[in-house]
Design a protein around this nucleic acid. Structure first.
Lengths: 323, 323
DNA sequence: ATCAGGGCATAAGCTGGATTTATGGGCGGG
DNA sequence: CCCGCCCATAAATCCAGCTTATGCCCTGAT
C-alpha cells in the first residue's frame, strides 16, 4: 500500500554489493506528508472532519479520504467518527502530539526560509550569527508573525564581524551576536545566555567520567572545534586563556557534531546545538568545572540608533526568552 | 508553480463572511515535503546529487529535478552544482539545518507510531505514562533502533495505574512512570528528573512577576490543571499538601497548554511539555520558591524480574539521559 | 592526446495520489 | 417531522514525481 511502489531498478541490480542501510525505506514513505499532519491537527482542534476541511480550504471528502489513507498508512485508528463529529482515539491523541512537533519544526523552517528569501523590500532586516540564526531566530520570527502578521523580515546570517558590518552600513536594522565582546560602534543588550558544553561519543573514556574536568585538562586535550573566529571558539579560547588545542577545526556546528558522534574525539559546542544528540545518547556531556563556558547572547544595533518599530517589537519578544 | 493551484471553490464563495485566518496558505504548500528534505540532507552529507539519489533509491534525474523544484519553491539557491559534485550554498547550509529538525521530528513520529502499531509479535512491550510516551520515548526508540535495529517495540500509553496493571499482568516488559510513588509490586530505578513549572500567558499579571510565588499563593489561586490521578496533578497536590485549587480540569497536557495560552489562567505543567511555547513566548514561566515541584521519572518492572534482553538494552539507554 | 568515469541537465512518457463534484445515509434539535 | 450538520462513496480530473534515454562538462589516468 503506502510502501515502495516497485523495487527501484538500482536496488534490484546492485543490491548484493551495496552495504545495507539502516533505514530500509525512506522516511517519507512511512510518515504522512505535512498536509495530512496539518489536517489531523485541525481535526483535533475543531472536532470535525468537515470543519477541518473548511479551515484548510479543501472539501470535506478530500479531508475524509486523506485522514482515512493516513490511518491505513499508519495502521492505526486515529479518529472516532460519529454522525455529530469526530474525536481523536487514544492512539490518535498521541499521534497528534507527535504530529504537532513535526508541524512546528516545519513552521520554523518556513519562517526561516521566508526570511532568507525576503532579502528585498522587507520592513525589518536582521543580521544574526550562525548559532542564533539556526536555533533561535525561527522561533522568534514565528512569535513576531503572531503579533505583527504583516512584517516581512529578511535575515542575513554570518559571523560577528559580518553582523557589525551590515549594521554599520545601514543594511540591517537589528543584529544578534554570541561573541564575548560587543563589536565597536554598536550598542547592545543581553537577551539570553548559552552555555558551551563538552561532549563526547558514549564510547569515549570521558563519557563515563564522574570527576569534572578542569581547565588544565581541557586545554591539554586535543578537541574537535569550530574554526578560530567563530563565536564558540572565541569563548572557549577566552575561558582557557587562548590555549584550546584543536584536534580538527571544522567550519560548521553540524560538522563538529558529526565528527564527535563518529567518535573522533571530544568536542565543545553550544548546548543549543546538541539537544537531540543528547536525548538520543549519540553524545554525552562531560562534566566540567572552573571554566567559564557561559556566554551571553546579545542583540546589537548601531550606537545611538535605538531600535524602533518592527525592530523594537522583535527585540521585546526575544528578551528574557529562553536560556 | 508551487503555490495554490486554483482558488478553491469554498474560499471563492464564502470568503467574504469567513474570518480571515492567520495562515493564508497551508504550510504544506510553502514547505517542501519530507522526501525533498531528506534528499537535501543526503546531498549535504554526500556532496553529490547522484550519490544522494542512490542512497534514497531513486535515479539521478529525479534527485536533480526535485532539488531544483525545491529551490524554486523556496526562492533560494541551495546547492552549487559543479561537474565534480555539489556543495551547499550559505543559504543552503542554513536551510539544511532547519530541514534536519523537521526530519528529526518526523523520525520521532515514525518511531512512535510504529511502536503504537506493533502491538502484536513485538520483542519488547513498553508501557509508559502519557508525558513520557509523548516527549521522551520516541527519542529512546530511535536510539534503540540505532543499537538494535531489529527490535520491534510496542507501546501502551496510559496513567501510572494502567502501567502497573499491564506489567503485573505480564502484558508489558518494561514501564515508565512519573508519579510520586512507585506502584505496589514493582521495582524501579530513577532514570531522570523533571520539573513542574508554573506558566501563564504573557498578558497575565503573573507573567511580569519578579518575586517568586510561595506555596500558599499557589495553593490559593485557581489553576488550570490536569485531572486528579494524573502524574502531574499528584505531584502538585503532594507539594502543596493536597490543596491545589482547580480553575478547570482538563484531560490532556495539550488542552492545558491551549487553555493557558488563551489566557484562561495560570497552569502547572511539566517543563518537557512547554519548551516551544516558552521560546515562542506564548507562555511565560512564573518563578516559584519553596515548593517541591521536581519529580522523578522512573523505569519500573515487576518486582524481582530484572529487565533482560531488549528491556535491559532500552533501560540502559534511558539512564542518566536528559533531565 | 585521448579516453573512461563521475556528475549534472533536459526531454518524453507514465503513474498514482489527491482533489473536485455529485450524491446518499445517519442522527439530533426546533 | 423536517432541516441541518456530519460523514461516506463514486467517478472524473489533474498534477507532481518517477523512470528511461541521451547529451554535455570536467578531471585524471593511460
Amino acid at each position: 500500500m503506502g510502501g515502495l511502489r516497485r523495487t527501484p531498478r538500482t536496488a534490484a541490480d546492485d543490491g548484493a554489493e551495496r552495504t545495507e542501510r539502516q533505514v530500509p525505506a525512506a522516511l517519507a514513505h512511512r510518515v504522512p506528508d505535512l498536509g495530512a499532519l496539518e489536517l489531523l491537527l485541525a481535526v483535533a482542534r475543531l472536532g470535525s472532519l468537515g470543519g477541518a476541511a473548511r479551515e484548510l480550504g479543501i472539501t470535506q471528502p478530500a479531508a475524509s479520504s486523506r485522514i482515512r489513507s493516513m490511518e491505513r498508512q499508519l495502521g492505526l485508528a486515529l479518529v472516532d467518527r460519529s454522525p455529530r463529529g469526530s474525536r481523536l482515539t487514544d492512539a490518535g491523541a498521541l499521534v497528534t502530539d507527535w504530529a504537532r512537533r513535526v508541524v512546528e519544526a516545519a513552521e520554523a523552517f518556513d519562517a526561516g526560509t521566508q526570511a532568507l528569501r525576503d532579502r528585498r523590500d522587507s520592513r525589518l532586516r536582521v543580521a544574526a550569527s550562525m548559532t542564533i540564526a539556526e536555533y533561535l531566530l525561527p522561533g522568534w520570527l514565528i512569535a513576531l508573525r503572531g503579533h505583527r502578521p504583516d512584517t516581512a523580515v529578511s535575515l542575513l546570517a554570518g559571523n560577528s564581524a559580518t553582523v557589525a558590518e551590515r549594521l554599520l552600513a545601514g543594511e540591517a536594522d537589528l543584529g544578534f551576536v554570541e561573541g564575548v565582546s560587543v563589536p565597536a560602534g554598536l550598542d547592545s543588550v543581553v537577551i539570553a545566555h548559552d552555555r558551551l558544553i563538552v561532549v563526547a561519543a558514549p564510547a569515549h573514556p570521558w563519557a563515563r567520567r564522574r570527576r569534572p574536568l578542569d581547565a588544565a585538562e581541557l586545554a591539554a586535550t586535543p578537541l574537535i572545534l569550530r574554526e578560530k573566529g567563530s563565536g564558540t571558539r572565541q569563548v572557549l579560547d577566552a575561558a582557557l586563556g587562548g590555549l584550546a588545542r584543536p584536534l580538527i577545526e571544522l567550519s560548521s556546528t553540524t560538522a563538529v557534531k558529526a565528527a564527535a558522534v563518529s567518535g573522533a574525539g571530544p568536542a565543545v559546542l553550544s548546548e543549543l546545538a546538541v539537544g537531540d544528540e543528547l536525548t538520543l545518547r549519540r553524545l554525552v556531556t562531560v562534566p566540567v568545572e572552573g571554566v567559564a563556558l557561559r556566554r551571553a547572547l546579545r542583540a546589537v544595533w548601531p550606537a545611538g540608533h535605538r531600535p524602533a518599530g518592527p525592530a523594537r517589537e522583535l527585540l521585546s519578544l526575544t528578551r528574557s526568552g529562553g536560556g
